[in-house]
């Protein structure tokens, strides 16, 4: 049923600085599904997430992406965020001089404004911050810290999940959010994704390890290799990757 489709990628060719990295991607995500995109380094996993979020440095040379029936490629990164797309960065960016509170307030209120809603009351905003920070086990003093400045690897990833929880996206894309995390941090990430699960919301989990997928069970698994999806299936693919690596595809 067409109305169940959240994201539809058709014949997507994309790259950066004149170099093609994605050579024809077709991918369909229905509402409520969790998709895992797995693949070796250099397969184009991060390019796919960057193109979905609208990173200006990347060029789409062919194909289309529909998100809830809208032409995603015609939308700016901020319009995509307002429509409900969230990208958890593989390497979260430091923003010196901007506190997490100021950052989240700007983000949340911009979205509300775009949707024709009033700005959030300060008290409500702080309450939401507190609740979501506790959820990802970030200490309250982090709200005053500059965004990602001086954070450890694990703290940066938790901050991504915190932002995801604050913005409550329809489609969350996790770009190697699990890399470099210990088991405790991995569980926090998993809890974050699982808590957002609903019949209306979907996630794309991009990874080359199977560990996170033990905690967040995907409905569909894709293998991305050399810019193409070479296999799509169920959880059995994770086992094949675990035992035979990516060479078997």
């Amino acid at each position: 049923m067409e109305k169940d489709i959240l994201l539809k990628i058709t014949g997507l060719h994309a790259g950066i600085e004149g170099k093609e990295i994605l050579g024809g991607i077709d991918l369909e995500i229905r509402k409520g599904e969790i998709h895992a995109v797995m693949g070796p380094n250099g397969a184009g996993k991060s390019t796919l997430s960057a193109v979905l979020a609208g990173k200006p440095q990347y060029n789409v040379t062919a194909g289309s992406i529909e998100f809830l029936g809208r032409d995603l490629l015609a939308m700016s990164p901020e319009e995509r965020a307002w429509a409900g797309i969230f990208l958890s960065f593989q390497y979260p960016i430091e923003i010196p001089g901007v506190s997490i509170t100021a950052f989240m307030k700007a983000a949340l209120n911009a979205k509300r404004k775009a949707l024709g809603e009033e700005e959030m009351k300060s008290a409500d905003f702080l309450k939401l911050m507190k609740e979501k920070m506790a959820f990802v086990k970030m200490r309250p003093e982090f709200s005053k810290r500059e965004v990602n400045v001086g954070f450890s690897g694990g703290e940066k990833k938790r901050n991504e999940i915190f932002q995801m929880a604050m913005l409550d996206p329809v489609l969350s894309i996790l770009d190697e959010t699990d890399s470099g995390l210990d088991v405790d941090a991995l569980k926090i990430v998993a809890d974050g994704v699982n808590s957002l699960r609903s019949p209306e919301k979907s996630s794309i989990i991009i990874t080359h390890y199977q560990k996170l997928l033990e905690y967040v069970v995907p409905d569909v698994v894709h293998v991305l290799k050399a810019g193409k999806i070479v296999r799509t299936g169920g959880r059995e693919i994770i086992d094949i990757i675990e035992t035979q690596g990516f060479d078997s595809f």
């Binding site: 960065f89 960016i93 001089g97 950052f103 983000a107 913005l167």
Partner: peptide
């Protein structure tokens, strides 16, 4: 540009992202 994209990906409009960057620069 990486800071800008990060902010925009959170829904902060381009102009507002630039203002925040300038504020952080002179802070």
């Amino acid at each position: 540009p990486d800071e800008q994209f990060y902010m925009r990906s959170r829904g902060i409009p381009e102009k507002e992202a630039r203002i925040l960057q300038m504020i952080s620069f002179i802070a």
